[in-house]
Simulated assay, not measured.
Amino acid sequence: MKKLIKTKLREFLKYLEDIRGYSDLTIKSYDESITEALLSIEVLEEKNHILLNLMPYRIKISSLNSKTISKKLSAIRSFTEYLNDNEMRVILRGDDSIKVAKTLPKPISHAHIIEALSFAEPEERVVVTLLYTLGLRISELTSLELKDVSSEWVRVIGKGSKQRDVPLLAQSKKALDEYLSKSVRKKFVFEKNGEKLSENSLRYIVIKVFKRVGLKVSPHQLRHSFASQLLNGNAPIADVSELLGHSSMATTQIYTKLGSALKQQNYNMAHPLSGVKE
């Protein structure tokens, strides 16, 4: 489909020259902006139309000044209007105005997480690993039940009791199995005296693990690191949004303001721990 759109782009540029009478410099600007955007935009073929998801591209150019961003998006809108006027039904997604939070939790680098894990006790290791490889909220981790963990997936109960399934990496499963084999649990993955560990208890574990390597880290930063690593690894923002349990991709865009291009990949290809060797 992108090949067809590129063909249409050449037609559009000729239209700007022959019909609209645009200057060579303006046409070059349109060409560069649209060509650049097509490298990141997700193109989806729906039943009756083509959907262009601008969100990955908007994340990529988010660090530019507002005037430049507006100019680039205007070129895409003009091209879309041309396509719709020439027997192609195209709908833009992610073209609305998005307010980005002034402050964002800083992700922790993969190298720092691995370093901290090397000094962690079995329980500490599992807590950090699950937060990092499942992208859980601390409230979701404390409520995680044994019955919701399978060999390849974890069923997470998120906000509003909304369920989502997140892939469980083989390395995470191994660490979890080793931890669970040490004692008998009744219901929850993290228990003490038959009761689930509190959020504060799990939060303290995370703080303690990273303090050993001179870092101050919160559980939410590990969730942010999960999202950042997946997006940097070219996972589609729609997939990351679903894995995080967000109700809309706009929330994911705010949560994961990044400067990297996004392309379609699956979870295991995107997450760095999937390639770690013992």
Rank of each mutant, 00 (worst) to 15 (best):
Y57Q: 00
Y30E: 07
F12Y: 15
I91D: 09
R20M: 13
D24S: 12
I27N: 00
E45K: 13
K14L: 14
R77P: 06
E11F: 06
Y57G: 02
I69E: 02
L25R: 15
P107T: 11
M55L: 15
S78K: 09
T103C: 04
E87T: 08
E81I: 13
S40L: 08
I50F: 03
I59C: 04
S70G: 08
L54V: 04
Y22S: 05
I34S: 06
I59A: 03
S63I: 11
L38I: 06
V90Q: 02
K60M: 12
P107K: 10
T26L: 00
I69S: 01
E11Y: 06
D31R: 15
K47I: 05
L64W: 09
I34C: 08
H49T: 05
A75P: 01
A101P: 11
I108L: 02
A101M: 10
T68S: 11
N65E: 15
N48R: 10
L44T: 13
K60C: 11
R89N: 14
S70T: 12
N65D: 15
T80E: 14
N84R: 06
I69R: 02
A101K: 13
T35K: 13
L64N: 06
K72L: 10
P105K: 05
L38H: 01
N53E: 05
S63Y: 15
D95E: 15
K14I: 10
N84F: 01
V90D: 06
S29V: 00
L13S: 01
K106Y: 08
I34R: 01
P105H: 09
Y82E: 05
E42L: 11
K14V: 11
M88T: 11
K14F: 08
S63D: 12
I34G: 05
G21A: 06
D85S: 15
L44K: 13
S66R: 14
I91F: 06
L38Q: 00
